[in-house]
Amino acid sequence: MYLIYNDKMYLAGLRPLIVFLFLTLFAPLIFCTGVEAGIMLHPTRIFLDNRNNSGTVMVINQENVPVKYRVSTTLYRTKPNGALEEILDLTQEQQELKRMLRFSPRQATLGPREKQTIRLQFRKIPDFSDGEYRVHLKVSPLPEDDSNARKADNTKLGVQINLLVGFSIPIVIRNGNLWVEAEPVACERTVSKLTGKPVLSVGVLQKGTRSAVVNITAYHILEKNSEAKVLLGKVPGAVVYPDVSLKTFDVPLDETLLDRIDKGFIRIELSDSEEKNTREGKNNVQYKSREF
């Protein structure tokens, strides 16, 4: 079973007979511990283009036991609600895209708390169409040897559950002279569904042929167009892909400044979050600010 959330994939290997019971009773624990334990990938997103066609991903074993894992690639389509759905019926162009992204190793074993580097390289074929493409690099832990599983103490629980948690990260590939514009179009004070703390819900609209990668910074100002501003909160590295166009981000608020929000205005500023040497076409990037 594959569960997709926030550009990451969670792979759960469960016995079919106990899937429903386990998810019903212990689902909250899966999502709390899956990020803290098992395998972690860094960075969580990589951009490649014609000048920078290679990169690395660090695989980190956070467990105190060895972990064997397999590396593969897959493609996802973005559904209207923002969720990712794996594309199973690949077109010829999509199959070629996967073949153009090379990586090594494809399988490895990490000792307790060890790290491993996965090397990536994008080799463009002739007449490759301009545009931005996404291939997800998927790292999937493999089941432990049955002999090890038998050593577990099964006197406390009649049925053993082997939960494997894996991740996938997007590899963003840009080809050609692409452009992007982005601007904040909505801002509302609300409460985070995840933390229960006050946030600014900021809608960012993207236009163009490539993704917008921005820092979202919220300031309080007493008068419009004022240069005097007080920092309220910030979200670094927010990404809006071309196939989504409009995306909402929660900007955490400094709770000591909440009284200020009821007076004056809020200025949302978007700034470039990518390093100059990680992409092409810097002059084709325009990020705007707006006051609410």
Rank of each mutant, 00 (worst) to 15 (best):
G13S: 15
G13E: 10
G13P: 03
R15L: 14
R15A: 15
R15C: 10
L17P: 03
I18M: 08
I18A: 00
V19F: 09
L21D: 12
L21W: 08
F22D: 03
L23R: 06
L23A: 05
T24D: 08
T24N: 08
L25K: 00
L25Q: 00
L25N: 00
F26S: 04
F26M: 05
A27V: 04
A27W: 10
A27N: 10
P28I: 01
L29F: 15
F31C: 02
T33A: 11
G34A: 12
E36C: 07
A37H: 11
A37K: 14
A37T: 13
A37N: 13
I39C: 04
I39W: 06
I39R: 04
I39P: 00
M40H: 08
M40Y: 05
L41G: 00
H42R: 12
P43E: 05
P43M: 07
F47N: 02
F47Q: 04
L48H: 02
D49Q: 01
D49P: 02
N50S: 13
N50Y: 05
N50H: 07
R51H: 01
R51F: 09
R51S: 08
N52H: 12
N52I: 09
N53A: 12
S54A: 14
S54L: 07
S54H: 14
G55N: 04
G55V: 02
T56V: 09
V57A: 05
M58K: 10
M58L: 12
N61T: 07
N61H: 06
Q62N: 11
Q62W: 02
E63T: 14
E63K: 10
E63Q: 13
E63N: 13
N64D: 15
N64S: 15
N64H: 14
V65I: 13
P66D: 08
P66M: 08
V67P: 04
K68M: 08
K68D: 09
V71P: 05
V71I: 15
S72L: 10
S72E: 14
T73Y: 06
T73W: 04
T74G: 09
L75A: 09
L75C: 11
L75S: 09
Y76H: 15
R77C: 09
R77E: 15
T78C: 12
T78Y: 13
